[in-house]
Design a protein around this nucleic acid. Structure first.
Length: 981
RNA sequence: GCGGAUGUGGUGGAAUUGGUAGACACGCCAGUCUUAGGAACUGGUGCCGCAAGGCGUGAAGGUUCAAGUCCUUUCAUCCGCACCA
């Protein structure tokens, strides 16, 4: 019998597939289309690694199944061949990038073919070839003509090693995405004149469309965060003694009564006009220091520093003068580069206020408890009185109720201030009058059932932080009707425990108030008791919604409602307008590097920046000897004088070419369209083709969740607006797959030498098919997996078993098949077909492979009835067809062994027969009180009453019924019988 | 800190969406065979227990005849973003 030898089978079929063009897609076919692909590959000298093997196999399986199902299935291939690594290699080795691509890419061909991927090589593309980048340049021109490309000097991330600017998306943890090793330096900001694409103009539609995408949820969230839309308002503050105003962006206009100071970013030009003569030297020094600090250093330390400008703004709500500060916790690039600081409701502002001793005014009081019927409003307060000598808080107990503690508290009398009210209650109820200091610490609203008054209460309560001089009780102060109260001194835990145990959560506002005061006392060093759970003011000082307080006519409004009302009110005075802000910035597309598509622009002294006419594209990248950046911030192209000097398309006068090249993310933002028309000399793509083939049905990758995916969506939407494309979204389904890591959980890396080379595994004799099965079986595709050295051999054994099974069948004698065996065989086969078809469709490859393994085991079990029999042939062929997407070589070989002369990979996919899945009898579990006590086998069509009767007769069921009558018997169709006693 | 995801045997992971937890595989144990191999085949393998039985899906509560799945609280890990007002 033949042995399973992938080493001979695989190369044989690879060659045949190549010669017969099985995987060539007819883009104009009448068949339904399917296009499945993984992210564009950057070809490097290292060749493919295990991550590539993972990524491309995922889309290959998808595309293969569809091809087998009769779709015109296209699995394209191409190279993202512009980019820094090739250029850096060229600088080092002196080999031109053009040349090195010429050897690297053919090497990739071999590796791709060895993996058995069903790529359509006839339509291969590479972004560094002029016939491709001509259209990359054309996209720039189209953007320019549409007013979406512009040039501007801007502070931009700069990587000193790459000698180029970077997009925000290319900065990872403060380092360049190409240089993110431990020894690599942080990126810096540098003022560079560069080109931008106005992606922000598409921010809203890019955001809104995310909801409907069939994409991995994590990626959708990442995109939403990246776009970072926030709704709020711009509010103008007059400057005291000046005609100028200071405009800020805020998402919380409802907190304006709590704005006690303003902060301007140090890099903001606004500072110049705000700083007073007295403060000038201090502010200048601060700004200088801030400019020297790299963005990353600035972010690394969250310490809030800043200096006063000397100027004051007028809070348009309170009409009060508030100081304007400069501090680097405010960013120049977001909003207006200035903020109104509301320390009571913003953690950062609070920290800053605390440090600079600026006032904190609470204007939103949180609301605790759920709304109840017929609530009666009450206004009052509670005393949280601390005796520093005792290091304890004052509470009291009521006669006859020894279990509960109460805080001195009560309702507001007419015209009484909140603090007076609380101090009065403290005196009347427990006689504490010897007071060191008292202040309203915080306010909250509570909803609860008042047990003695038997009403539902809605209260606004102020909590006073009171520090006592002594715990001396003034008997004369005690109110007579409140006698029977016993003063006790407690730790806050005692109170919290009591309140938190309350099932109705009636005391949540007390918990809040107490925690706030204790935190403040601890912070001020008055409360030194160490065994207390430490709260922080930050924890309590949450940026929450609630009802407004200290906000004059807006008091009592819900903060959401107040946002609109306050903006409307200020708008009437011309001081505010609604505004939406985004975190996303325009896309910086200039790179000061050689190895990219030249930007099709010339600079003419007379006409400025002039677009090169389309009929002169491509602007071909000249071949150079030396690729190193020119050192003046321009690319090596600045030295290519012949190329550089040209004439202006407008005036015909002398002009210089733009020396920046385009970000390679542009190459990869439209390549899926070029796949549909790779040889078109007249256009980037034709709308007819694109409208037929877009969107990409299946797309996957393990990187680039934000940048690339956002850019591709942007470019696609742009083409839609231009009328060149119907569908605004490029990728119908996107799977963000996991990565393969080393067995110890660390990333594979060349420097660690822990890499696993796919080719080595293939060549060692296990073959590509076993590797493919291992990778697809390791777990759900979206999970990261760890490389298991036993995995590939295991997969190999599985394939060898299938291989032997078919060989044994072919050599077996004809045997009759009993009805029972036939049923078993058909059930095993058709349930497998159903499962595999559905699971591949749903990207659950690991369970699809489990079903294939199960089927192979089932068939082996039935081998005693083996024989050359149609039903057996059908079963084996089904197995071979279903495994073909995973193991194309093995399947093709077995398909041939089974007597076929065409390729299994085109148009051969089994249909399952529902009738084969029907069972004569089913096994049901019988539960007594939720525990399985018996199993019964009943006819599939038995009726419920009979089943219940049988269930109750079971010996073990009778035993557990213990002579009692069942209260209830539940029958779940086809599953179980549940008996309740 | 914010957002997202995930916690199930020794390991990777299944679970028809509230219905017999552990499919399928790796590993391990026992056996068969001899073309002593990177074998193949057969059987076993969640934990405790001789057994009957009990316990078991990160932890603690709850809803239900029934919870890995739903609710509440909580812990841990991973991945994004990170002073975005």
């Amino acid at each position: 019998m033949k042995r399973y030898e992938p080493k001979t089978i695989e190369p044989k079929w690879q060659k045949i597939w190549d010669e017969t063009n099985v995987y060539t897609a007819d883009l104009d076919s009448d068949k339904p289309k399917y296009i499945g692909m993984s992210m564009f590959n950057y070809p490097s000298g290292a060749g493919i690694h295990i991550g590539h093997a993972m990524n491309y196999t995922i889309s290959d399986v998808k595309a293969r199944m569809k091809r087998q199902q009769g779709y015109e299935s296209y699995h394209p291939v191409g190279w993202d061949s512009f980019g820094l690594p090739a250029e850096n290699y060229a600088i080092k080795a002196g080999v031109s990038p053009q040349e090195s691509m010429g050897t690297i890419i053919p090497n990739y061909h071999k590796q791709y073919k060895a993996m058995g991927w069903s790529n359509d090589w006839e339509k291969e593309i590479a972004s560094h070839r002029p016939e491709y980048y001509k259209w990359t340049q054309w996209i720039f021109s189209e953007m320019y003509r549409a007013g979406l490309a512009y040039q501007e000097e801007r502070q931009q991330w700069w990587c000193d090693q790459c000698q180029t600017v970077l997009a925000n998306e290319q900065v990872i943890d403060g380092k360049c995405w190409r240089h993110d090793g431990a020894d690599d330096p942080l990126v810096e900001k540098k003022g560079v004149n560069q080109w931008f694409f106005k992606i922000t103009e598409y921010a809203d539609e890019l955001l809104d469309a995310i909801d409907d995408l069939d994409w991995t949820e994590a990626v959708k969230t990442a995109q939403r965060n990246w776009i970072g839309r926030s709704e709020g308002a711009e509010i103008s503050f007059d400057i005291n003694g000046s005609k100028e105003t200071l405009t800020v962006f805020t998402t919380r206009p409802d907190t304006i009564y709590g704005a006690t100071f303003m902060v301007v970013a140090p890099e903001s030009e606004l500072v110049d006009s705000l700083v007073t003569d007295e403060q000038k030297s201090e502010v200048d020094a601060y700004r200088k220091a801030a400019a020297l600090k790299s963005e990353v250093e600035r972010q690394a330390s969250k310490e809030k520093t800043g200096v006063f400008t000397g100027s004051y703004a007028i809070n348009p709500a309170t009409e009060e003068k508030i100081p304007i500060w400069v501090a680097d916790y405010v960013l120049g690039g977001y909003g207006t580069g200035a903020i109104m600081a509301v320390p009571a409701h913003d953690e950062r502002d609070y920290e800053f206020a605390k440090k600079q001793k600026l006032p904190v005014i609470q204007v939103v009081a949180p609301v605790f408890g759920v709304k109840r019927e017929n609530e009666i409003f009450a206004d009052g307060g509670a005393a949280i009185a601390f005796d520093p000598n005792k290091q304890k808080y004052a509470a009291f107990k009521i006669k006859g109720n020894n279990d509960e503690y109460f805080l001195p508290a009560g309702g507001l009398d007419e015209k009484e201030s909140r603090l007076d009210c609380i101090l009065r209650e403290l005196a009347e109820e427990v006689g504490l009058t010897d007071i060191e200091s008292a202040e309203i610490a915080t306010d909250a609203h509570g909803r609860y059932y008042h047990r003695t008054k038997e009403i539902n209460r809605f209260v606004r309560a102020s909590f006073a932080r009171i520090v006592l001089k002594s715990s001396k009780v003034d008997e004369t102060a005690l109110e007579e009707h409140e006698s029977g109260y016993t003063l006790v001194w407690v730790d806050p835990e005692v109170l919290l425990e009591q309140w938190e145990a309350d099932p109705n959560r009636d005391f949540d506002h007390y918990i809040y108030g107490l925690k706030y005061v204790v935190a403040r006392n601890i912070e001020l060093g008055i409360d030194k008791s160490s065994n207390k759970k430490v709260f922080t003011v930050d924890e309590v000082n949450a940026e929450k919604d609630g009802k407004l307080i200290n906000s004059v006519e807006f008091d009592g409004l819900d903060s959401k409602e107040a946002q609109t009302k306050i903006v409307d009110w200020l708008a009437e005075k011309g001081k505010a307008e609604k505004k939406i802000n985004y975190k996303m910035r325009d896309w910086s597309v200039s790179r000061q590097r050689y190895w990219g598509a030249p930007i099709p622009i010339v600079h003419c002294e007379k006409d400025g920046a002039v677009l090169i006419p389309d009929d002169q594209l491509p602007v071909v990248l000249p071949e150079l000897e030396d690729f190193a950046p020119s050192g003046d911030g321009r690319s090596a192209l600045a030295r290519a004088t012949d190329w550089l000097k040209t004439t202006c398309p407008e005036c015909g006068g002398e002009a210089e070419r733009e020396t920046d090249t385009l970000d390679t993310y542009i190459c990869s933002s439209w390549y899926m369209l070029r796949y549909l028309d790779p040889h078109n000399q007249e256009e980037a793509f034709t709308s007819e083709r694109a409208n037929k083939w877009m969107p990409i049905d299946f797309y996957n990758g393990g990187d680039h969740a934000t940048a690339h995916m956002l850019y591709a969506r942007f470019i696609t939407r742009f083409f839609t607006k231009q009328g060149r494309l119907e569908n605004p979204e490029p990728f119908k389904q996107f799977l963000f797959n996991g990565k393969v890591r080393a067995s110890d959980g660390s990333a594979f890396s060349k420097s660690k030498g822990n890499g696993v080379d796919p080719l080595e595994i293939i060549n060692s004799g296990y073959g590509a098919d076993a590797l493919r099965v291992y990778l697809m079986f390791a777990g759900p595709l979206e999970f990261n997996s760890k490389w298991d050295p036993d995995g590939v051999p295991g997969a190999y054994r599985f394939l060898a078993r299938i291989y032997s099974l078919v060989q044994e069948y072919l050599e077996a004698d004809k045997v009759e098949l009993s009805d029972e065996d036939l049923k078993k065989l058909r059930f095993a086969t058709h349930s497998m077909i159903k499962k595999v078809t559905e699971d591949i469709e749903q990207n659950s490859y690991n369970t699809a492979i489990a079903a294939l393994m199960k089927n192979s085991n089932d068939l082996s079990q039935l081998k005693q009835c083996f024989g050359v029999h149609d039903e057996w042939r059908a079963s084996l062929e089904s197995l071979v067809m279903c495994i073909a997407p995973f193991t194309p070589h093995t399947a093709e070989e077995l398909w041939q062994d089974l007597g076929h002369s065409d390729s299994i990979h085109k148009g051969h996919w089994p249909q399952y027969d529902e009738s084969a899945l029907a069972q004569d009898s089913i096994t049901l579990a019988v539960q007594v009180n939720g525990k399985v006590r018996a199993e019964i086998k009943v006819a599939a069509d038995a009726d419920e009453e009979d089943i219940k009767a049988v269930a109750l007769e079971q010996e073990n069921v009778v035993k557990h019924l213990d002579g009692k009558d069942p209260k209830k018997v539940i029958y779940v169709k086809g599953r179980l019988v549940s008996v309740v006693v």
